[in-house]
Amino acid sequence: MADIKGILFDKDGTLVDFNATWLGVADFMAMDAAEGDRWKADRLLAAAGFDFVSKRFKPDSIFASGSNMDVVELWFPRLSEEDQMHAVSRFNEITSVQGSSMAVALPGVLDSLRALHTRSYRMGVATND
């Protein structure tokens, strides 16, 4: 272990609970896109791969493996390129602000990170975000 200088972590599923974190963020995005219409927001979430029965995102959902541009293209297929960029910018803002404020750490993660920090490991996070 003496040769290991640093540890690189994936974020979703390793440090944070993906479903607990991203359901709140995705719901915020869907409600924003649906202009507050709950029924329409739920249809957008379903199209993006949220399973309302299991209350989880499907593994191949846009929220599991896509980008905000993918979400915009799915939810707003008729937008002009300029309007798409505005929508992506809005979703980037939402995911940045809401993602950090709504993040749910997996059990034991904070204690583990503290323990690794005291051993002077350099730590980083690799993420699609």
Rank of each mutant, 00 (worst) to 15 (best):
S100C: 12
R38T: 15
L15K: 11
R38S: 13
W75G: 01
R38D: 13
A87I: 03
R56G: 06
L23A: 09
S89C: 10
L110N: 13
W22E: 00
S112T: 15
A26T: 02
R78T: 12
H86G: 11
D111T: 11
V25H: 00
S101T: 15
K40P: 04
H117P: 02
A33E: 06
Q98V: 13
H117W: 11
S67A: 05
Q84T: 14
E82W: 07
W75R: 00
L106P: 00
V25N: 00
L74T: 09
T21V: 05
V109E: 01
K58G: 08
P59W: 00
L79Q: 13
D129N: 12
F76C: 07
L79P: 03
Y121C: 05
S89P: 08
A33S: 08
I7W: 03
E93A: 12
E93P: 03
R122N: 07
S67N: 03
G24C: 06
M85T: 14
L106R: 02
N128R: 00
I62W: 07
F28D: 10
F28I: 08
T127L: 01
F28A: 08
G36F: 05
A41H: 02
G108H: 12
P59N: 10
L15V: 04
A115Q: 13
R90P: 05
A41P: 03
H86R: 15
M31F: 11
V109R: 01
A105G: 06
N19T: 04
R122D: 06
G108I: 05
K58R: 13
N128T: 05
I62C: 03
R43V: 15
I7P: 04
H117S: 14
M123W: 02
D10R: 01
A2D: 14
S80Q: 07
H86Q: 13
A126E: 09
R122V: 08
V16M: 09
S112I: 10
A103C: 10
A64L: 05
F52H: 05
D83G: 04
T21R: 00
F28L: 10
T21S: 14
F52Q: 01
D111L: 06
L110W: 11
T118L: 14
S61D: 04
E93S: 13
V72Q: 12
D83K: 10
V97D: 11
S112F: 08
V97M: 12
A47C: 02
G66S: 04
V53C: 08
T14P: 06
V25I: 04
M31N: 09
V97L: 14
S65F: 06
T95M: 03
L8I: 14
R78S: 12
V97R: 14
N68A: 07
I7T: 10
D51P: 09
D10N: 12
V71I: 15
M1F: 05
G124F: 05
R78N: 09
L74P: 01
V72T: 07
N128V: 04
D37A: 02
D83R: 11
A105Y: 12
